[in-house]
Simulated scan of single mutants.
Amino acid sequence: MILEVAVLQVKEGLSDEFERDFKLASAIISSMKGYRGHELQKCIEESHKYILLVRWETLEDHTEGFRGSAAYMEWKKLLHHYYDPFPAVEHFMNVDIS
């Protein structure tokens, strides 16, 4: 499993609208092949900062499947105008430490 991590800096004063639209966008991402779950966390110290965690079966399910889909265009239309700066997205895999 792959964990996608993005720190989202939402433009000041738009948090309520962002959260509303993110609920709509959640239906989009959750319908994608390889999707395993996601969560959105809001920063306590900076109320316009969020962290998005998305679990994917494979890296390609995100980078090729989702990002290459028509559904991603809808996701982008709903959410990308809220960010400043545009978020860096990184991918992580579990480390077996047992």
Rank of each mutant, 00 (worst) to 15 (best):
K23I: 11
Q9H: 14
V10I: 11
A71M: 06
Y72P: 03
L14A: 13
A88D: 14
A25L: 07
L59K: 09
A27S: 09
S47P: 12
L79V: 02
E90S: 15
L3H: 08
L52W: 10
T58A: 01
V54I: 12
K11Q: 11
F86V: 12
A6Q: 04
E4W: 01
L53K: 01
S69H: 01
F66I: 02
P85M: 06
K23N: 07
S26Q: 09
Q9K: 15
H80V: 12
P87E: 09
V7H: 11
D61M: 08
R36G: 05
E74V: 09
G68H: 07
F22G: 03
E46Q: 15
F92E: 04
E39H: 07
A88Q: 14
S98T: 12
L8I: 08
S30H: 10
E12A: 12
L8S: 03
F66L: 03
D16K: 15
A70W: 09
S15A: 15
L53F: 07
K76A: 11
Y82L: 04
D96Y: 09
L3N: 03
H81L: 06
E45W: 04
E12D: 13
F18Q: 04
F22Y: 15
Y72R: 07
K76E: 10
L53I: 08
F66C: 00
A6F: 04
Y35I: 04
K33R: 12
L59G: 01
M1H: 04
I51A: 10
V10L: 03
Y83A: 01
E57L: 03
S26V: 01
W75T: 01
H62T: 05
M73E: 15
S15T: 15
D16L: 13
R20S: 12
V54R: 00
A70Y: 08
M1S: 12
M32G: 00
A27C: 05
E19A: 02
S30Q: 12
M1E: 07
I28D: 01
L8C: 02
E12H: 10
S15H: 09
S31P: 00
D96H: 09
F92M: 09
D21V: 00
S31G: 12
S15D: 13
K49N: 11
P87I: 08
Y35K: 02
V7G: 05
K33N: 14
I51P: 02
K76C: 03
P87N: 08
E60Y: 05
G34A: 08
S31D: 11
V7W: 05
E64P: 00
D16E: 13
W56R: 01
D84K: 14
E57W: 00
I29W: 00
V7T: 10
E19P: 03
L59M: 11
R36I: 06
S47A: 06
T63S: 06
Q9P: 01
L53T: 00
E60W: 03
R36L: 13
S69M: 04
S31T: 03
K11G: 01
L24W: 08
N94P: 06
E39C: 08
E12C: 05
E46H: 13
G34H: 05
I97D: 12
L14W: 10
I44P: 00
C43D: 11
S31R: 10
E90D: 15
I97T: 14
G68W: 07
K49F: 12
Y50R: 09
L24N: 10
D96P: 03
T63M: 05
D96N: 12
M73S: 14
L3M: 11
